[in-house]
């Protein structure tokens, strides 16, 4: 029903290009892991290697303790939900969902019953006789999910499954995905480039860049205490202030040398790490907050982005005395 995945020093080369560079990662049974990164970072390559669609140049993958080297996708305890759904257009929804069971030699009655259960699980109960072209994109992706879960894989791989959906539907599907994962208990490995999606669903986020793992941890940790500058910037907007020999362009701030990183929403008039007076250059209303661009009086050519309370409405040119509530200092 569920199994852990152990990725040991996996390297993947395409010609001279290095898609994965010695990646090691342990995923616990029943965990919801999101591989996050920009396109070309190796996240999909890693997913393909777990699923058996590609063999790594070096290293190996263990699922439930079993070495998967040389094991074809059809013999692995994994199934995949593809971004383009990849439903079988000539089959009904029930036949689509029952396909994997049919390949495992399960009788018609049993697999029809299971297919109906799975369709009900994804909120499409009673639609078994429909065909894929009669459904919307979100519904098709649910069918693809039901089809992949019907064979009760140990590990479910999701390759940007929500990428083709519009924003509102994507947010709704995220909640549902998380909910389904809790109910079935299967290990989910989910690939996305959307950091909000990653934070919404993941038990653990693995940030990838250039074929390497940059950072990993629970969403809160990766967002608030990123390990690298790349991770910090990829998870959301960030202000960077270089500090050298204890001095920054804002003067002595009492932080170690490196790159001082502060999220826009961590800056307020109460913050304990004082940044000094800043002049408001521009404000934009974003609904849940007021986004302001400010320049410190001590370093007028430095620009900081600050999220102010939605009700505040400082005039351009107003000088605010700002400070950071949380911050991290990373290697520049």
């Amino acid at each position: 029903m569920t199994a852990g995945v152990s990725i040991a020093k996996v390297t993947q080369r395409y010609g001279t290009a290095l898609a994965l560079d010695g990646v090691s990662l342990d995923i616990a049974a029943g965990e919801f892991v999101v591989l996050l990164g920009p396109s070309g970072c190796g996240k999909t390559t890693l997913l393909n290697i777990i699923g058996g669609f590609a063999e790594p140049s070096e290293g190996r993958v263990l699922i439930g303790g079993r070495d998967m080297t040389g094991v074809a996708p059809k013999n692995r305890p994994t199934t995949t939900v593809f971004q383009d759904y990849a439903l079988f257009p000539h089959m009904t929804l029930a036949e689509n969902v029952a396909f994997g069971l049919r390949m495992r030699g399960i009788g018609r009655m049993a697999r029809e019953a299971k297919a109906n259960d799975m369709l009900a699980l994804v909120g499409l109960g009673g639609r078994g006789a429909f065909r894929p072209h009669e459904l919307s994109g979100g519904q098709r992706q649910r069918v693809a999910l039901a089809r992949a879960l019907a064979v009760e894989p140990d590990v479910l791989l999701l390759d940007e499954p929500l990428g083709a959906l519009d924003l509102k539907l994507r947010r709704a599907m995220q909640d549902e995905l998380k909910d389904i994962q809790r109910r079935v208990g299967t290990t989910f490995v989910h690939v996305t480039h959307d950091q909000e999606e990653a934070m919404a669903i993941a038990d653990r986020i693995v940030v990838m860049n250039g074929g390497r793992i940059e950072d990993e941890g629970p969403p809160q940790q990766v967002y608030l205490r990123p390990r690298t500058l790349f991770s910090a910037a990829f998870m959301g907007e960030i202000n960077r202030i270089p500090v050298k020999d204890g001095v920054s362009r804002l003067g002595v701030l009492g932080v170690p040398d490196g790159c001082l990183c502060i999220r826009p929403e961590a800056i307020s008039e109460r913050g304990s790490l004082r940044l000094g007076p800043c002049r408001v250059e521009e404000t934009t209303f974003f609904g849940t907050y007021l986004r302001a661009r400010v320049s410190p009086v001590r370093a007028p050519d430095l620009r900081l982005v600050v999220h102010l309370p939605q009700r505040s409405a400082p005039e351009v040119g107003t000088v605010l005395d700002l400070g950071a509530e949380t911050h991290v200092v990373l290697e520049a």
């Binding site: 059809k74 990849a86 439903l87 396909f99 994997g100 390949m103």
Partner: peptide
């Protein structure tokens, strides 16, 4: 991609051809 999904769900190559590729 439909063929890839069929393989992923455990279909041997001749069933991929016979149940997915040709009917599509």
């Amino acid at each position: 991609s439909a063929e890839r999904a069929a393989r992923d769900l455990g279909a041997p190559e001749w069933k991929v051809l016979f149940l997915v590729s040709a009917p599509m």
